[in-house]
Computed example of a mutant assay.
Amino acid sequence: MSQYQAFNVELADNIAHVQINRPEKINSMNAAFWSEIIEIFQWIDDTDEARVVVLSGAGKHFSSGIDLMMLAGVANELGKDVGRNARLLRRKILQLQASFNAVDNCRKPVLAAIQGYCLGGAIDLIAACDMRYAAEDAQFSIKEIDIGMAADVGTLQRLPRIIGDGMLRELAYTGRTFGAEEARSIGLVNRVYSDAASLLDGVMGIAREIAAKSPIAVTGTKEMISYMRDHRIDDGLEYVATWNAAMLQSTDLRVAMAAHMSKQKPEFLD
């Protein structure tokens, strides 16, 4: 693993812990963040030993969102021609989207552990994760509306499938701050923990449970769930039949069945 400017990355017990590491800047997302997250999740995707990912933030807060100095830098690149400005901005936006697409497209489950601020671009990030968990002090806000723009890195596209259309509209139109219990009640987070320490302990426990399962089965399950976001039921049934025609021949199936029958814990290859 390489050294990163915006992240700490550790791999232990088949769990890749990816921690945003700019606590002095409230873990705001600078230029290094956006490029490094693609590299990190590509490495995770390519590393069989990594079976599940925990995404967290160092310090008191998960992330305050995009670094405003980075936005100012983009503004300084604009010139007088509207067409060329539009082309530049579109390219920049697509580049930012690719960073969180890397999280969404990762073959391994990604669990977000959220404490303190989770604002603006941080909502885009957690929307790309498989599951989200929060400490009681977590504060969420789709802040883009308050700086005069529509969120453009995934919140408006992914959250309707997570919290529903009407609730997303309320939060996106108002930009209001809401806490961990409301986040749980609307389905944004799965569970709330009393503090940051118990949050990370709890999420790591769930990650260990997932990591102990067949990686072939976990990958196939994630692939099928993701596929169904954009397809009909009959499409999904056809796809899983084709997928399992190959995957059911894995030795993992025999290992799992033998362990179940002998009441022992199975051990799967990476």
Rank of each mutant, 00 (worst) to 15 (best):
Q157S: 06
G120I: 01
V240R: 08
G120L: 01
W43Q: 08
I225A: 11
T219R: 14
M1K: 10
A127C: 08
V255D: 02
R184V: 00
R232C: 01
F7W: 06
A112P: 11
E136F: 02
T221P: 02
G120V: 01
G154M: 02
S28M: 03
A32E: 12
R208E: 07
S262H: 04
R176P: 03
R254C: 00
Q3K: 15
R84E: 14
G121L: 02
A75G: 14
T155W: 01
M149R: 13
D46C: 01
Q97C: 09
T251M: 00
A183W: 04
D230E: 09
S226D: 10
G202N: 09
P109F: 12
E10F: 07
M69Y: 02
M1D: 10
E136Y: 05
M204A: 09
Y239G: 05
L71S: 13
V203L: 08
D235H: 15
G179D: 01
T251V: 06
D81G: 11
Y227T: 07
S56W: 11
A75F: 12
D124R: 05
G166R: 12
H231F: 01
S262I: 01
V103P: 04
V54T: 12
V110Y: 09
R132S: 07
A72R: 15
N14D: 15
D165L: 03
I210V: 15
Q42T: 13
R22M: 03
N76H: 10
R51C: 04
A150L: 02
S141T: 11
A180Q: 02
L200E: 10
D235K: 13
Y4H: 10
R87Y: 06
A211C: 11
A75R: 14
V203N: 12
C118K: 03
